[in-house]
Amino acid sequence: MKKHVIGSLLVLSIVLFLHLSSTSHASSTSNLYEVKGGDTLPKIAKQFSTSTYELKITNGLQSNTLLEGQKLIVPVIHEVSPGETLQQIAKEFHSTEEIIQHVNRLPSKQLRPGQMLTIKSKPLNMEGQHIVMTREEFQDWLLNQKFTREIHLIQQHHTWRPSYKHFHGNNYFQILNSMQQHHMKTMGWSNIAQNITTFPDGKIALSRPINIAPEGTIGPKANENGIAIEHVGNFDLGHDVMTQEQRDTIIFVTALLSLKFSLEPSIDTITYHHWWHYKTKERVLDNAKDNEVKSCPGTNFFGGNSTTHAKNNFYPLVEKKMEELRDLFHRNQ
């Protein structure tokens, strides 16, 4: 009887080990899973012994919809290599030392070769549809996404209000929810107008899903194949002076989106709200009176809001950043 029990436990252990090894893709070469036809969140969650909720907050999923070819960060089983540290493992798998210690009930940070660790990645900062990310988190998120909508235009806007005086260092969701309420209740739009928002501290927020065209006063021609980016601040002359952190983020986000959608910076791919007629919604570039256009993204946005300012001041910075990111981007596609 005892031999039978021991034998059954041995078989069960082998089966469990093989299941964990197969779901971790050969014990941890990557914690990315590529979505296949017929996959659903519950199905993937079951396969990797996790929950749909954890998949959503780890991957910044704004709905349960998945697209074939999309990549998801999933839990994996990792075998510790000689000399490998907890810090190295956490960095490789987008996790933290604290999360790995907690999940594996490790009494210390000391590891031994051959030790098997369950690795769960760090959840993103989400509230409803809004996701607040660092530049590195946004880069990973964008690289893993598939989109159903053609994107030909990246719009640059400033909020005017809220401005810098309304940002208190961590009130991202308060600002985003306030803008969403204003856009829906006052402006009559279906959701918050912009897809992406940048903040004075350099953080990035996703709100309106990128697969849904933006709304707003720039008009339907610019929105149909566009992505709207709102930069929190009033960048008209004499008002907010853009922080270096936000400046770097604006360049970074625009460069990364340009790479993702195969766009080369020009007036036809990266546009300012100022170049579109307030009433007719037609593109007028620099050929309009002040009362026919908005100053957005600001008369001091990277030196000014004209096409000349964009060509001389903004596009070269985006192009330089694209070159820095190009190899990394293509390696991960």
Rank of each mutant, 00 (worst) to 15 (best):
E264C: 07
A255D: 04
E127D: 08
N332D: 14
F93V: 07
Y278T: 11
P75V: 01
L176E: 02
H239W: 12
T299G: 00
V284D: 11
A222S: 09
Q244S: 15
S121C: 06
M1I: 14
N125I: 15
F173T: 02
E264T: 11
Y315H: 09
M126S: 03
L72R: 08
P209G: 00
L55K: 02
H78V: 07
L67V: 03
E54L: 14
H330F: 14
D290I: 05
E136P: 11
E264P: 02
N225P: 10
L41F: 01
E98D: 05
H158K: 14
I227G: 00
F48N: 12
T299S: 02
T299M: 06
P82W: 00
Q181T: 11
V74S: 05
E92P: 12
T159H: 00
L61C: 00
T148E: 15
T159K: 00
F314K: 03
E150V: 10
S30Y: 01
N223W: 08
V241P: 09
H231Q: 12
E34M: 04
P316F: 02
I250T: 08
E324F: 10
T52P: 12
R283A: 10
P75D: 02
K289W: 14
H94S: 14
S163V: 03
K122M: 13
Q145M: 07
L256Q: 04
A90L: 06
L32P: 04
N171K: 01
K3P: 06
N287L: 10
E324K: 08
L285S: 07
L176G: 01
L12T: 09
H102K: 13
T118H: 08
K203W: 04
K165C: 11
K320I: 15
Q244W: 06
Q194Y: 05
T271S: 15
F17M: 03
V293N: 08
E224A: 11
E137C: 05
I119S: 02
F93E: 01
I14N: 12
I270E: 04
N177F: 14
I250F: 07
L153Q: 15
T134D: 07
K91D: 12
E34Q: 08
P209Y: 11
K2R: 13
A228F: 15
V15T: 10
Q101N: 04
E230C: 12
G202P: 06
P75Y: 03
N125A: 10
D39G: 00
L20W: 05
T269H: 03
R247K: 13
T85P: 07
N234A: 12
